[in-house]
Amino acid sequence: MNYFLHIVILLEIYIILALSLNMKVGFTGLLSIAQAIFYGIGAYVTAIFMVELGSPFLLAIVISIVVSVFFSLFIAFIASRLRDLYFALATMAFQIILYAIIYNWTSLTNGPYGIAGIPQPEILGVAFDNLSSFALLGFVFMVLTILFLLWFQKTPFSRLLESTRDDELAVIAMGKNPKYYKRFSVCISGALAAIAGSLYATYVTYIDPSSFTIDESILIMSIVIIGGTGNIWGPVSGALFYILLPEVLKFIDIPDSIAASLRMIIYGFVLILIIRIKPDGFFGKYVFK
């Protein structure tokens, strides 16, 4: 049961994370390879505020969001200058630089040793200090995220994000500024990733930089691509697939020593298959060229 709840919590966190990246990739066509950094900013800001300053969980989440949105503006700046592959490469550089800062700014982040003893969330006197209550908290955040996006994708605003994704020049010719829409999309994306990071930090109670590497960013991207971009169920199905795949593999009798590698091999294989056979992912709406 405990193990099952652990999987559920991971799933909730990864669904929020995949949806956060989909805001950039799916809605606005920004192929950003730095999502782990915003996840990390959420986790670190939450950890630092709760451990060092004794701030309550909800306040820590709000501050995480603010900080993450602030750093998202760098991505918006890159997006207003560079396109496609150049944009992706620049976000990769951003990921590497911020990772190096987190890793080396030991007085703030404790560097490679990480931050331990992060308190578990408490909201209005209710402590979410065991697996089942935390799973419930994660579920609430996940559902709120999904509801927000379901509402958002029906708004006139979301249409303009999609137009920007499909053809920026045509948006300009319609008298609208694509930079504005990109800025908005990266900020929402950063905010959602920060929420996932806050949940992660207070769930595992110990964080170090290894959870927020460029590998993690690529992984989040692959989850979105496998599931499909541009709508909500694509990223959700991608996260389900990524988290549940190792569980399914457990039913096959393979030695532990190769299980982890086999998981990545199968995962990579599916990624290739998806790109070959169903480039819009399991449930995607939008094909990335």
Partner: peptide, 30 residues
């Protein structure tokens, strides 16, 4: 270009620039 469009200069392109992954109705609304 944005200001000129809003001032009333519209353009039909030599190669149509229709939003590929949006539905026709949404394209008009956008």
């Amino acid at each position: 270009a944005i200001a000129r469009s809003r001032a009333g200069i519209g353009r039909l392109f030599q190669n149509s620039r229709v939003f590929k992954n949006m539905r026709v109705l949404d394209i008009l609304l956008a």
